[in-house]
Design a protein around this nucleic acid. Structure first.
Lengths: 225, 225
DNA sequence: ATGCCGTATTTCGTATACGAAATGCGAAAC
DNA sequence: GTTTCGCATTTCGTATACGAAATACGGCAT
């Protein structure tokens, strides 16, 4: 008999629901968050909605506009660039820290994560590719054992998700990205922490260069990993 | 006639009040956060207290314990080490990004920040030293123009504050720390971004090595910058 | 003395109420 | 036609109420 799982609070559930709507683009930058409307739609009272919005505000997913209330925060080039600069610093650190912590079990899981991404890419499933991308990197953060890094990057990936939803599309997913993931991970498996970290850094910087923000009329671009 | 400043919500004010109590050590790790008591003490109703606690929980300043409610999160060696590892990656990035953005005005402000820290150190005022330390680094983050980095490190400094409050004392503040700050900043002023970033990285790694966690009976240690 | 049960109390998530502030709309004045 | 003002409506911060769950305590049975 297992422990009974605690029921998650309505605040947490509303938060997740709103965050998901924001990150998938269901709610666009500039959209107002009307508490009454959200409460009615989710079938809860306004209070947990109010609390959830406060949390989203603290994390900058939404922003307060004078005389306009709370709206979904804008996505701009700066945000994207800022995240990639930070990734360029933190992802190599994650790789460096994770490498000596690999075990047979986690090696298998890492290879599975890379393979899953490759499959999703070949299937042309953009949402699955993004999920696989996040899963692979999150796996590395967790393996690093550095919870500040993991928490930071988890939050950053949420911002990335919405950047991609608003700014980018996934028409041109490339095998190169997943091959690079594979190479980085195999360098880790061989114990070459420095090489792997350098390769990850190059991979992120390269991705930052390659990603194009969508022009107003909807250009297309390769994504990153 | 200026814009009237918006009144800050009670949720925000309660959040700040609690965060300060946690970071200064007024509330210790393991202390329970009783909503009724906090509400009574701050003279507000429970609802904004409940919201503020949810935000603190999301940022891991407090943690939920089964059958015990919400308590101040523990401070341990891992947390400290995690923060320093992340600092080792992000502070050099901040320096790198900030260096080409220096202006005569910000140069003067940076020098003032270093001088203020030196003064506080010489006055033996531990709290002022910590404030000056935070101010100097925060100045660099803001100057970097990368808001993800700035937000991340602001949050990390709050965790550091409470780590220091719980784990460390400030008996041995050294001139060396502030001299290094000065050297790093002057390298930036000369436009040597790479040198300055390397020096900052070395400074952080050195600090991480030098900082000792307080033994149970209250040892003493030098702090960092 | 110990364990169990019933009851009272405490705590907290969330619904609801209240009131302040912001917004919208129509009518009157110019 | 345009501007201003008064009133109605909407929105949201926060206080209060309600009810569920957890905890504490006293009494009774073994």
């Amino acid at each position: 008999m297992e422990h009974l799982q605690p029921v998650r609070s309505l605040v947490d559930r509303v938060y997740d629901s709103l965050l998901d709507a924001i990150c998938t683009g269901e709610m666009k930058p500039g959209d107002r968050l009307a508490q009454d409307e959200i409460a009615a739609r989710l079938g809860v009272s306004r209070q947990p909605v109010n609390s959830a919005i406060a949390m989203l505000k603290a994390q900058r997913f939404v922003t307060e506009r004078p005389r306009r209330g709370v709206e979904v925060a804008p996505v701009d080039r700066d945000l994207f660039q800022s995240i990639y600069q930070v990734r360029g610093a933190l992802e190599p650190l994650a790789v460096q820290l994770a490498t000596p912590r690999l075990t047979p079990g986690t090696i298998a899981r890492g290879r599975d994560a890379v393979a899953a991404g490759m499959e999703a890419m070949q299937a042309g499933d953009a949402a699955a590719v993004l999920r696989a991308d996040i899963a692979f990197h999150t796996f590395l953060y967790d393996l690093s054992g550095n919870r500040i890094l993991a928490d930071t990057m988890r939050l950053n990936w949420q911002h990335l998700r919405r950047s991609m939803g608003e700014v980018l599309r996934f028409p041109g997913m490339t095998a190169q990205v997943w091959k690079e993931h594979g190479r980085i991970f195999e360098a880790m498996v061989r114990g070459e922490a420095g090489e792997a970290a350098q390769a990850m850094r190059a991979h992120i910087l390269d991705a930052a260069q390659r990603v194009q923000l969508r022009p107003a009329d909807g250009g297309q671009a390769d994504t990153d990993g």
